[in-house]
């Protein structure tokens, strides 16, 4: 109990010192469940002391939308995903529910993705499409399409509050190295790398936006800007286009490798999906 209190006090002190820099709050509790929005940085990110959820960098008004699932606009799409879960599609006459009793059985899955299976890097979107094609005999969904984003959000939600913990060694190592290389490579006419904005300058304003660390623990994320759920690869594509670089394709080996690397930079943060951003 005592230790608990001391720990809370220490967290509060960190939170206070940070609020001078940031717009909103540090403490995220969703319907009573505490999220870890700051964690000690892993040793493979020597340029970061802490890893910080994108939620911390948003304005109070945007932050508030994530505190309660009734206020979170993502939940319209969670409802749609629940319908898709039960909907029969494809030549086998099956729905997700025909094979899986309850989506809750995927608790924890999101925390370990992307992962290597049979020598290939596998994302949540890959798993969803492989189920559709191989088990249901249905058409695959577009990698960043609305049903894909909704289903990815529903499955990710089952892990909400659990720490991100992707594997980066062993057979994952070459994918992780490739992702790291992309993260630090300057591209486009503006000649900028992910690291220039999200590692060197997070916390600062870039005109009207406050730069975050570009973490993906909250994806898919509802953006006020486009009023829909956005997938990880759609966001990567957007950032690349902003620096006037030709983006890799959603679902490409490059973006999957980048996803693994970026996920690993958020180790210890809570899965916050489906989050709300501007």
């Amino acid at each position: 109990m005592r230790i608990g209190n001391m720990f809370l006090a220490a967290t509060a002190a960190v939170a206070l010192s940070a609020t001078s820099l940031l717009a909103g709050s540090d403490r995220l509790s969703i319907d009573g469940q505490e999220m870890t929005t700051r964690a000690k940085a892993p040793d493979y990110t020597p340029n970061l002391d802490q890893v910080i959820s994108g939620w911390v960098f948003r304005s109070e008004e945007t932050q508030a939308l994530e505190l309660d699932d009734f206020d979170n606009p993502s939940f319209v799409f969670i409802d749609q995903a629940n319908d898709l879960w039960n909907k029969v599609d494809g030549s086998e006459g099956k729905s997700c529910a025909s094979c899986h009793d309850d989506v809750a059985e995927f608790k924890g899955l999101r925390t370990v993705l992307p992962r290597v299976v049979d020598g290939k890097l596998q994302t949540l979107e890959d798993i969803i499409n492989s189920e559709r094609v191989n088990r249901m005999g249905a058409e695959p969904w577009g990698y960043t399409s609305a049903p894909m984003a909704a289903m990815a959000a529903l499955i990710s939600l089952q892990s909400r509050g659990m720490p991100v913990q992707v594997k980066i060694d062993g057979d994952a190592a070459p994918f992780w190295e490739r992702g790291k290389e992309i993260y630090y490579t300057r591209v486009g006419q503006l000649d900028l790398a992910c690291a220039n904005c999200h590692e060197d300058n997070y916390g600062k304003m870039i005109r009207a936006d406050r730069l975050s660390q570009g973490q993906i623990n909250g994806f898919p994320t509802y953006r006020l800007k486009n009023a829909k759920l956005n997938t990880v690869h759609a966001r990567f594509k957007g950032c690349m286009k902003n620096v006037r670089a030709k983006p890799y394709k959603p679902g490409s080996d490059e973006f999957k490798a980048l996803e693994l690397y970026v996920a690993s930079r958020g180790a210890g943060l809570s899965v916050e999906s489906p989050s709300v951003r501007n």
């Binding site: 300057r186 486009g188 900028l192 904005c197 300058n201 006037r244």
Partner: peptide, 15 residues
């Protein structure tokens, strides 16, 4: 981090 405003080539993957 400041972009070069009058440079035409040498960029990786420009749109």
């Amino acid at each position: 981090i400041m972009p070069a405003f009058y440079r035409a080539d040498g960029f990786k993957r420009p749109l």
